[in-house]
Write a protein that binds this DNA or RNA. Structure first.
Lengths: 323, 323
DNA sequence: TTGTAGGCGTTATCAC
DNA sequence: GTGATAACGCCTACAA
C-alpha cells in the first residue's frame, strides 16, 4: 500500500503537502495540488485508516449493537442505519449480540478497542455496568432504553402500542383475549404486554392466558400458541407479527377459522404481515423512520451539534383480515 | 484511554513487558505477569486497534459486501457470517451496496483504507476492475461468482435449482408455465431462469411468459405477476420465495385458487415460506451452511491454511401446498 | 506556500 | 527476563 511518503516522492513534494491536499487543509498551490492528485491517482493511494485514527483519535466508525440480523425487524433497522452512516462518512460495525449479555460485553470491548466515534444500541443487558464503560462515547439507545445510562433514546412507545392492540380487540367486542409473544426478556415486548393488560383492566377484563417464550421465530411461537388455544380465547394478541403469524397457523391447524373463530392482531407491520393469508391486522411502527432518526441523533452527538429529541413516532392500526 | 505505557508505569515494568503479557509472546516472569494483569484490570486497559494495525499490518477486520440487509436472504447470511467471524476473533464490516455498482466501489475503497484482512462478497458488479484493487487480500465470493476474479466461490448451484423447479411442475403435468422474479440483473436469478428454461426445453416446452423486474419485494413482484397472469399459465415459477408469494397474492386477488387454478413454486425456503397460506412449495438451499462454509474458507485463506473447496450444497424440493 | 520533525500506541529487535 | 529503541503512516506545529 502506497503511503503519503510515496506520493510525496512521486509528485516532488513533501508528505505535509500531500496531507494538505488530501484533507483540503492549509495552503497548497494549484501546481502542487495537481501534481499530488495525479500521483494519488497513479498509485491508487488510499489513506491508512489505522494511522489516521492513531494520530487524530477519530475512527469514523460507529458500533451498531443489535440482538440479531436474522430477524427482519432488526435487519431493516440495520440496513437503514448502515446506509445513513456510510452516506455521512462513517463505517458501521454491526454486532449481533444474539440475545446474550456475555456477547454484548465482549462486543463493547471490541468497539472500545476500535475507538468507535459513537454507538447505536438495542441492548439486551439488564444493568448499566457495561455501558458505563462507554463513558465519553456518544450513545443512542434504539427501540429500548439503555439500563442506567441517560442516553438519547429513539423508538416507538411500546406501552401505547400494547394499549392499541387491546383496544382494537375490545372494540370488536372480544372479552376472552389471550397474549402470546417472544422473547420474554425483551423490554419492548414486556412494555407491549403491560400496555395491553392495562387497557384490558380498564375494560374490566383480564387475559385468559399469557404466554411469553424465549425464542422469537414462527415455529416457537406456533408451539407457544398451541397451549394458549386450550383456553379457548376468541381473540389473540401477538406481541410481534412473527408471534401472531405463528399463532394463526396453530389455530388453523386446529381447524379454527381466522378471524371467525379467533381474531388475531400483531405488532410491527413487517412486509410479511400484508402477505400472509388472511392478511394480518397489526400495529405499524415507522421502522425506517426510527432508524433514520437514531442515526441522525448520533451524528448530531458526534459532531457536537445535538439535535432536539425526535417527535414521537406514530403508531397506526392497520386493519386487514384477521380481525 | 489507558495505553501500555500507563500499564507499565503502574505495574513497575516496561511497555515491552506489558506487550509480552498481552500477546503471550516471549518470556515474562510470573511475578511481572501478575502485576501487569492487575494493572490492566484496574485501569480497564484495552489495546488500541489502530496502533496495532499500524504496527502489525493486520486489522482483524473482514469486509462483508452484500446487496442489502432488508432482504431476509442476505440478512440471514450476514448474521451467520458475522457470528462466525467474531467467534474467530474478527470484526465484520458489513456493507450494503444497495444493488449499486458505484456504492460497491466506494465500499471497496473504504475496506482497503481500513486494511481488512479479508473480504466476503456477494457482488452486483458486472466487471472485475474493482475487485482487482483487492489484489493481495483474500476474497471469497458468496452466492455468485466475482467477475474476472479467480476467488473461491461458495454458493448453491442456481442453474440446477432452476431445473428442479421446472422439473417439479413438469412432473405435475403442467405445460403452460410462466416465470417471474427479481432483481433481473442478479446472476443467481439469471442462472435459475436459465436452468428452468433449459429443463422446459428438454420437455419440448417454452414458457408462456417470463417477467423479471428490477425490484425484489412482495409488492413489486405482485405487480409483475399481474401482467403474467394475463397469459393464463397453469403453473408459475417464482425465482425466489418473495416473488412466488407476491404472485400468489396476485392470483388470489384475481379469484384464482392456488394450487387448483395455478400452481406456484418458489426458491430459497425462507422462514416465511412455511408460514404463508397456502404454504409455499419451494427449493430449499442450506443458507446457514453456505454462510458458515464461506466464512471457514476465508479464515483458511487468511491464516494461510486454505481449505479444500466445500462439497456442493444440497438443493431440496420442499413440497407444501402450492403445487 | 512548503518542508522538517515529533509523536500518537504498539510490537519486534536487540542489548543487557 | 527485561527494558530501551525504532518504526508503522499520518497530521500538525513550527520554521523557513
Amino acid at each position: 500500500m502506497a503511503s503519503i511518503k510515496d506520493i510525496a516522492r512521486r509528485s516532488g513534494t513533501s508528505p505535509a503537502t500531500v496531507s494538505r491536499v488530501i484533507n483540503g487543509s492549509g495552503y497548497v498551490s494549484e501546481a502542487s495540488r495537481a501534481r499530488v492528485q495525479e500521483a494519488i491517482a497513479e498509485l491508487g493511494f488510499l489513506p491508512n485508516a489505522g494511522a489516521r485514527r492513531l494520530r487524530s483519535g477519530e475512527s469514523r466508525m460507529v458500533g451498531v449493537l443489535l440482538p440479531a440480523l436474522d430477524v427482519p425487524f432488526f435487519a431493516i433497522l440495520a440496513h437503514v442505519i448502515e446506509q445513513a452512516l456510510f452516506q455521512a462518512g462513517y463505517q458501521a460495525l454491526i454486532c449481533c449480540t444474539d440475545e446474550s449479555a456475555a456477547a454484548e460485553e465482549r462486543y463493547i470491548s471490541t468497539l472500545l478497542s476500535q475507538g468507535v466515534d459513537g454507538v447505536i444500541a438495542a441492548s439486551v443487558l439488564a444493568d448499566g455496568d457495561q455501558y458505563g464503560r462507554l463513558a465519553g462515547v456518544p450513545v443512542v439507545a434504539l427501540d429500548r432504553d439503555l439500563p442506567g445510562l441517560a442516553a438519547v433514546k429513539v423508538g416507538a412507545d411500546h406501552h401505547a402500542g400494547g394499549r392499541l392492540m387491546a383496544g382494537h380487540l375490545l372494540d370488536q367486542g372480544h372479552s376472552r383475549i389471550a397474549v402470546i409473544g417472544a422473547p420474554a426478556h425483551s423490554a419492548p415486548i414486556q412494555a407491549r404486554l403491560a400496555g395491553a393488560l392495562e387497557r384490558l383492566a380498564e375494560a374490566g377484563h383480564s387475559p385468559v392466558a399469557v404466554a411469553l417464550g424465549p425464542v422469537h421465530d414462527f415455529d416457537a411461537c406456533r408451539a407457544l400458541a398451541e397451549d394458549v388455544l386450550e383456553t379457548s380465547p376468541t381473540a389473540l394478541i401477538g406481541t410481534t407479527d412473527i408471534a401472531a403469524i405463528g399463532a394463526i397457523h396453530a389455530a388453523i391447524g386446529r381447524g379454527l377459522r381466522v378471524p371467525a373463530d379467533l381474531a388475531v392482531i400483531g405488532f410491527d407491520d413487517l412486509p410479511a404481515a400484508a402477505y400472509v393469508l388472511p392478511a394480518l391486522t397489526t400495529i405499524s411502527q415507522p421502522l425506517r423512520e426510527i432508524a433514520a432518526a437514531a442515526t441522525a441523533q448520533l451524528i448530531g452527538l458526534m459532531t457536537g451539534a445535538p439535535l432536539p429529541p425526535p417527535a414521537p413516532f406514530a403508531l397506526r392500526l392497520v386493519r386487514r383480515e384477521t380481525t
